[in-house]
Nucleic acid binder design. Structure first.
Length: 571
RNA sequence: GCGCCUGUAGCUCAGCUGGAUAGAGCAACGGACUUCUAAUCCGUAGGCCACAGGUUCGAAUCCUGUCAGGCGCGCCA
């Protein structure tokens, strides 16, 4: 409704441009930085100044004078080279009624555009998710929610690297932990996963899989040398039976890790539509097919026994990279190209990957490969910058090797899902994030997330109180229409910005904008609350204010919901 | 050396597809709870928008260069 009011305004401006000067104008409509100016504004006079050879102020005057204002607006005021527009009171009342009527739809758009796929987190299933994955999960899931509300058919995806050396390494570490758990001394290698979580998994596994463990030890027999990754390599490769045992253990630990990741994400209000397995891709023949396709197009060359993708023929700024190693193995890059091809073939028109800054070097290559496959323009990488944890003003040092990484699960345990999500989302993706643990832990006014939640809880209390006094929060539309006071209209005007905030957030793939909108909305509500009583002896005023409160509450709840943050009834 | 991200109030950050007096939260200072939630509100103070040029009617925003911090430049994933 709001957006159509804007469109009406644009149409009226275009019409006036033709009438006055016989030219086609393309007005930009924006929300003025200061709400005192108005609800919407255009800088069209600035843009016409040169062509019309008149001052912007003069043009603004003429244009606003001749403009036939749509019914949704009550005024058009020239201000220098701007024209400021104000919504009519009636328009705002209808808006409030609409919000109360269908709160879940507010700001929503009808389905439009093609299918969107957003891939994020995609951490290797070799250990628990860390805080970098936490940021990706928060931002990615919020983005998916926002795009859906904005009318985009959107799917979330996690690429599960369940093949390759690191999985084998995981399995070896796991086996060593099982052996260790029996009381034998083991030695880990440089590439081993030494985190405590594998020792814990080994205990859990041994408790519920006695036969598998006995099988393993029956093969080991009375071997009493050093149990190490090198030992494992020789021992399990020696005969097919052992190999089978190892493979069984490998898939066990892999499934355990994958499930643990899934559970952690669920607990972080991040639902993934598709966990896509690398092994499925490898086994399907698509990787070989993709490589063959590129080779047939003459986009590859052989050197040092390896097959290279000749990137510069697609993009001169990029360097060639290896698709097939000299030992015949596909590289990660080759498999990843096939994976993206697979996504497109699954019917996605827009593919977004949220990558960390450490993968920046692959963007150009991947885009070149996508272009070579004939899918140019369908693939974008959203680079999400890194996370530093701060405690006592100092960076928390994290090192995988020393096993002192802070996991997503620990972070949630520490500060809670709401706080963690808010901190992660309330920042531009490109901005490096300093996550202040002390601030996040503080259950006080120092913590910005509570500001928004508190507004919601306060309103909930008011509505409860109103109900007890006989005022039904589901205010009647007609009463609402005649009973709104000027101060309340200011709040309604802030609500009217929600659809713009949502649309911009979706268009720019920028979830953080919603955080700031919600802070602003809460900021508009709290002073109103301090100044005015909602429930009073004046029935008409009470009804109107109750309705207004309900509209604000619904919008806060909707916005927080899209961000995956709870909207508490009381605090 | 090359590439990407960042540099805005004491701190953490918005604003960056050029537009109105550069904003918010926290911290600081002074006020406000017999009332629907003080996790709140009102007020004060706080800025060569890293620096230097350029483009423009207009630059925090675009371009060039410099400085500072982070990340990346493997037949690793």
């Amino acid at each position: 409704m709001i957006l159509s009011a804007r469109d009406e305004l644009v149409a009226a401006l275009i019409k006036t441009g033709r009438e006055l000067w016989d030219i086609d104008v393309s007005p930009e409509i924006a929300i003025p930085e200061n709400m005192d100016f108005g609800d919407l504004a255009t800088n069209l006079p600035f843009q016409l100044a040169r062509e019309l050879r008149r001052s912007p102020a003069q043009i603004a005057g003429e244009l606003s004078g001749a403009l036939k204002l749509p019914a949704s607006f009550k005024s058009a005021e020239p201000a220098g080279g701007f024209i400021n527009f104000k919504f009519s009171d009636e328009f705002l009342r209808v808006l409030l009624a609409e919000i109360i009527d269908k709160p879940a739809d507010f700001g929503g758009m009808p389905p439009h555009g093609g299918k969107v796929n957003i891939e994020f987190v995609s951490a290797n299933p070799t250990g628990p998710l860390n805080v970098v994955s936490a940021r990706a999960a928060a931002v990615g899931s919020a983005l998916v929610n926002i795009l859906r509300h904005a009318g985009r058919d959107t799917s979330s995806e996690y690429y599960l690297n369940d093949a390759g050396n690191q999985i084998r390494e995981l399995a070896v570490s796991f086996v060593l932990r099982i052996i260790e758990q029996r009381g034998f001394a083991v030695e880990f290698g440089r590439d081993s996963y030494r985190g405590d979580y594998l020792a814990d998994e080994a205990v859990l596994f041994a408790d519920s899989n006695e036969t598998a463990v006995e099988e393993l030890f029956s093969q080991i027999g009375d071997f009493r040398g050093t149990f190490s990754p090198e030992w494992a390599q020789d021992f399990f490769d020696e005969d097919p039976k052992r190999k089978a045992i190892f493979n069984g253990l490998q898939s066990s630990i892999l499934e355990r890790m994958a499930n643990s990741i899934r559970e952690t994400l669920d607990g972080f209000r991040t639902s993934i539509d598709t966990f896509f397995r690398e092994t499925a891709l490898r086994e399907s023949g698509e990787v070989a097919e993709t490589i063959e396709f590129l080779r047939a197009k003459g986009l590859t060359f052989e050197e040092d026994g390896a097959l290279w993708f000749d990137t510069p023929t697609i993009d001169p700024a990029e360097e060639p990279f290896v698709l097939v190693k000299s030992d015949g193995q596909w590289t990660y890059g080759a498999v990843d190209i096939a994976y993206h091809k697979n996504k497109i073939e699954r019917g996605f028109d827009e593919i977004y990957d949220i990558w960390g800054p450490d993968h920046h070097g692959h963007i150009g290559r991947m885009k070149a490969a996508i272009k070579a496959l004939g899918f140019e323009g369908k693939f974008e990488v959203l680079t999400l910058q890194q996370v530093n944890l701060l405690e006592g003003g100092e960076k928390v040092k994290m090192s995988k090797r020393e096993g002192n990484i802070v996991t997503l699960a620990e972070l949630v345990e520490d500060v809670g899902v709401d706080v963690a999500r808010f901190f992660f989302i309330a920042r531009r993706m490109e901005a490096h994030l300093d996550f202040d643990l002390d601030l996040a832990r503080a259950e006080s006014d120092e913590n910005p997330v509570y500001y928004v939640q508190y507004a919601h809880a306060r309103i909930s209390g008011i509505l409860e109180h109103a109900k007890n006094r006989g005022f039904d929060p589901r205010a009647d539309r007609k009463e609402l229409a005649s009973l709104i006071h000027p101060e309340e209209l200011a709040l309604a005007r802030k609500l009217a910005q929600w659809p713009f905030a949502l649309a911009n957030s979706a268009e720019e793939m920028a979830p953080h904008q919603l955080c700031f909108y919600l802070i602003e909305l809460a900021q508009a509500f709290h002073p109103f609350y301090a100044k005015h009583r909602v429930v009073s002896d004046d029935e008409a005023v009470t009804m109107a204010r109750v309705a207004l409160c309900r509209a604000i509450k619904e919008t806060l709840a909707l916005g927080l919901g899209l961000l995956g943050i709870s909207a508490p009834e009381n605090m």
